[in-house]
Design a protein around this nucleic acid. Structure first.
Lengths: 198, 198
DNA sequence: TCACCTTGTTAATGAGCGTTAACGCATTTC
DNA sequence: GAAATGCGTTAACGCTCATTAACAAGGTGA
C-alpha cells in the first residue's frame, strides 16, 4: 500500500468535499455554489474541473465500486492457498476499513445510484454485482449448505450491517476505531455462521 | 391487531404514494405534480390535504418512528415474564415484519431525516432513540458482558442488517417472504450472539 | 332554495439552481 | 517577449418547481 504524501490536487479536493456534502444532504440537496465554497472557489469555477454536477457524482460512485472490487480481488489473490475462513476474514476486514475510513462514500454508494446517467449507472451496478458475486463464492465455499439465493441475501444483509457505521458515528462515544472494527467483524462472522447453520 | 377493511382515505393514498416516490428518487427528486398524478389529482390539489411537501415527509417519518416504538412497547408488555431470548425474538420479528411490509418507509427512515424542520427532526430522533434504548436494554439483559456503548453499536448494526431488505428485493428470486424473514432472523440472532461473546 | 364546505381545476408567481458567457490574470512555452 | 493555457471571477440565461390565486362544481344542512 503506497501512502500518498503529496498535496491533493484540486480535483481531489472537490471530490472529497462533494462526497461529504452529497452524503449529508443528498445530491439534489446541495448546490454547486456550496461545493465550490467548500474548496474556496465559487460555483461556476468547478466547471474548469468537471463537466457538471452529474459528472462529480458519477466519478465518485464509479470510483467507490471500482476500489471495493479491486481491493477484494487483490485480497483474494494474496490469500492463495489459505484457509477459507481467513479469506472471508480478509474480505470483511477490507470492507470495514473502507466503511470506517470513507463513510461519506459508503453512504452515497447505495443512496444516490439512481441519479446517474444510464451508462454510468449500468457500469456501477456491474461493478457492484461482481463484488457481491465474489463474496458469495467465498461464503458458499465456507458454508456449502447455503443455497445460492440465500447466500446472496446473506451477503447483502452483512453489507447492511457493515455499512451501518455512519449511524453509529457521532462524537467519540464508541470503543474507538479498532474496537468498533473488531465488533463489526465479529458480528459479521456471527451473522454468516447463523445463516449457514443447518 | 385490527385489520382495516374500509377504503383508504385520500390522505392515506397520498402518503402511501409519496412514500414510494420519495424512497425511489429522494425527497428533492420528486415533484408535487408527480405525487398528485400518482393518486389521480394534479399538483396543487395536494394542498387541500397537506400544508406542503415538507408536511408529507414529516408525517411519514413521525409515523414510522412512532409505529416502530409503539409496536416494540406492545411486544415488551405482552412478553411479561417470558424468557429474555423470546423477548428479543419478538422484537426482531416485529422489525422484520415492518421492514418487509413497508419497504419504502424503512428506506426513508434513515435517508431523509435531515430534510425535516428542526422541531419535527427532534421529535423523530427522540422516538428513534427510545426505540434503540429499548432494544439495548433487552440485549444487555441477554448478554451482560456487553458494555453499553458496544450494545448500542450492535443494535444499530443489526438495524442495518434488517433494513437491507430493499436491496435484496428485485423480482422473486428469493426463498419467498417467510424464508427471507427466517434467514434475517437467524442472522440477527447470530450477530448479537457474536457481539455478546466473551 | 340557498348558503357553505369540500375538493378539485388551471394560471400565475417567485425563488433556486445548473449552466454558459465574457472577461482577467498568472504561469508556462516557444 | 509574445502567445497560449490554466484557473479563477461575476453576470446573465433558462428551466424547474413549490406555492398561491382565482375559480368551479357537487353535496349537505337549515
Amino acid at each position: 500500500m503506497a501512502t500518498r504524501t503529496d498535496a491533493p490536487t484540486r480535483r481531489e479536493q472537490i471530490l472529497k468535499e462533494a462526497a461529504r456534502l452529497f452524503a449529508e444532504r443528498g445530491f439534489h440537496g446541495v448546490g454547486v455554489d456550496e461545493i465550490g465554497a467548500a474548496v474556496g472557489i465559487s460555483g461556476p469555477g468547478l466547471y474548469r474541473h468537471f463537466a457538471g454536477k452529474d459528472a462529480m457524482l458519477a466519478e465518485l460512485l464509479v470510483g467507490i465500486s471500482g476500489q471495493l472490487l479491486t481491493g477484494a480481488k487483490q485480497r483474494l489473490r494474496e490469500a492463495g492457498g489459505v484457509a477459507p475462513e481467513a479469506v472471508l476474514d480478509s474480505l470483511i476486514e477490507g470492507h470495514i476499513d473502507f466503511a470506517l475510513d470513507d463513510r461519506p462514500l459508503i453512504t452515497l454508494h447505495d443512496r444516490e445510484l439512481d441519479r446517474l446517467r444510464d451508462t454510468d449507472r449500468k457500469l456501477v451496478r456491474q461493478l457492484q454485482r461482481q463484488y457481491v458475486e465474489l463474496w458469495v463464492e467465498v461464503v458458499r465455499g465456507l458454508y456449502p449448505d447455503l443455497a445460492e439465493p440465500a447466500a446472496r441475501s446473506a451477503v447483502h444483509s452483512v453489507f447492511g450491517l457493515l455499512n451501518s457505521t455512519p449511524h453509529l458515528t457521532r462524537p467519540g462515544s464508541l470503543p474507538g476505531r479498532t474496537g468498533t472494527a473488531e465488533l463489526l467483524h465479529r458480528m459479521a462472522r456471527g451473522a454468516f455462521a447463523a445463516a449457514g447453520a443447518r
